[in-house]
Amino acid sequence: MDMQNSNSINTDAKMLLDHAKTLRFHTGNLVSRSRLKKKCPGSPTEELQDCIQATLSDWISTTKPSSEDFPDTLDCFVPQETDVITPEEREEVKVSAKLFLCESVQSSIRDAVEMACQTLAVSQLDSVIIAPPGPLENDSQTLAHLQPAWEELETLVKSQQIAAIGTSDLDKDLLEQLYNWAQVKPSSNQVNLASCCVMPPDLTAFAKEFDIQLLTHNDPKELMSAGTFQETMQDGLQDGLQDLNVADWRLEWVLRYNVIVKSRGIIKSKGYLVSARKASP
């Protein structure tokens, strides 16, 4: 690409980013994507950082010359990297997702699920696990803390956009409270083995009695801080865009999805959807 075309693309990307109020990333299929810097990232946070940087950089380099239309919502993705599920293969795969809420905005749940369905060209996700925004420091999760997000998930189950819903990092007492209160019961609960080397016996017994699947994970409590997200965006900007102000951008939610071939138990595709919003002046 010659210098003139590069400058034109950078100018166009800068105008689009300056105007946009919402920024959404689709990383594409990480199983087949070859442009990521780290083939074996050390943590989920590092993997997400690498994905956002690569997606932003690729999107900037393929941005078309600007028109008069500057959308409020900007979708950053590379078309050839998308992993649409065809109607013929839908019955052969399971689509699962984990949704990390960075802000307590219930509309984020619906937005994330609808974007996942649209991105993968499916009408329903087989399972969604929710990771609510962390409670205040030295505080612990409570049922009241979980209820608003769970009610939104229940609405999506009733509208058949999700088949099953699950939780993350609930101890036996809180899982029991949620189970007894919820209209749509949790089908699974993730346990972080970094803080718990062995499944607690009381949690195991309760999950077995009520047919709740216990899963393990290694995600941090906060997948990505506001500061880390802004640094990640800055690193993904090319020469000529380094002066773009990223301090106003706030991470809203992150959805990580897996498409698994049922008969073989292998991951066909994996990716992240990310939404960020520019803070009002």
Rank of each mutant, 00 (worst) to 15 (best):
T63S: 15
V31Y: 00
V261H: 13
E89Y: 04
H19C: 10
C51K: 02
D239L: 08
R250D: 14
L36V: 01
E92R: 11
R256C: 11
E151G: 06
L193N: 13
G236Y: 10
T55L: 07
K185P: 04
D72R: 06
V246S: 07
P44A: 09
I162F: 06
P135Q: 05
L255Y: 05
V246D: 03
I109R: 05
E252H: 08
T11S: 12
K94F: 07
R250F: 12
E151H: 09
P65D: 06
P220V: 10
P200Y: 04
P148C: 12
C197F: 11
P65S: 14
K94S: 13
S188R: 08
L193C: 11
M3K: 11
I52G: 05
S269N: 09
A205S: 15
L214N: 04
I85N: 01
I9S: 13
A194R: 09
I130S: 07
D235P: 00
Q4T: 13
Q242P: 00
A54E: 10
L203F: 06
S107G: 02
N5R: 09
I260C: 08
A121R: 02
S140C: 13
E154D: 08
Q147D: 09
G271E: 05
Q53Y: 01
T22P: 00
D58P: 03
L23Q: 07
D83G: 08
A276K: 09
A116S: 11
A20R: 03
G236R: 07
N192T: 05
V157P: 02
P148I: 11
R110F: 10
P281A: 14
G240N: 03
L178E: 00
D211M: 06
A13Y: 08
L36C: 02
L99G: 06
A194N: 12
L101Q: 12
G134F: 00
P200K: 01
S187P: 00
A163S: 15
T232M: 06
I129A: 11
D219A: 12
I109G: 05
R256L: 10
E91Q: 04
S140V: 14
D83H: 12
A149N: 14
V157H: 00
Q118L: 13
P79M: 06
R90V: 13
D235I: 02
S195N: 14
L244R: 10
A182D: 07
